[in-house]
């Protein structure tokens, strides 16, 4: 018999403690147990990136990630990026450039882009493509997503400049 244990971690900047079984995968913990359905299941085998979340500042595929790995870690999902009233610059940029069509890849794209911009605030095209190559999109041909990430990088830089003023 597998038995659940209490698992504590930080989720979208808030501490959570939840009972988790040994075999639980992070994606199921987020979607099924915690009701955070922004993170998508595309392939369930690490190929599409729809399940991308950020664990301790790094983009990972939640569908391959044993939930127990996040003990005492900080997890960020698309729900923690911004809210409908207060969109993150990345979300704004995706909307403004038309980088969202069916939207299934979008949460994963946003999280991969977020991880990239945290590490590389001013990425060139190649760096963006490398960081997002693990996020498949069937709709957009990636053109407007590339544009959106660049626009978001610019917005984030601007808001930093404004804060400094």
């Amino acid at each position: 018999m597998s038995k659940g244990k209490e698992l504590s971690f930080t989720l979208n900047n808030k501490p959570v403690t939840v009972e988790v079984e040994p075999h639980t995968i992070l994606l199921d913990l987020l979607r099924e147990k915690l009701g955070l359905t922004g993170t998508k299941r595309g392939c369930g085998e690490g190929e599409c990136g729809a399940c991308t979340v950020i664990v301790n500042n790094e983009a990972v595929n939640a569908c391959l990630y044993p939930a127990w790995k996040v003990e005492n870690c900080s997890v960020l999902t698309v729900e923690g990026l911004g809210s409908e009233e207060n969109l993150h610059p990345l979300q704004e940029a995706f909307l403004e450039t038309g980088a969202v069509q069916c939207g299934f890849c979008t949460p994963g794209m946003l999280m991969s882009s977020y991880a990239l911009l945290q590490k590389t605030p001013d990425p060139d095209d190649d760096e963006i493509k490398t960081a997002l190559a693990g996020n498949l999109c069937r709709c957009t041909g990636y053109v407007k997503i590339l544009e959106a990430v660049k626009k978001a990088a610019y917005k984030m830089k601007q808001s930093e400049v404004n804060e400094e003023k």
Partner: peptide, 9 residues
């Protein structure tokens, strides 16, 4: 190897 997500893990 794979994607950045795979390489990170």
């Amino acid at each position: 190897v794979g994607s950045l997500q795979i390489r990170n893990v």
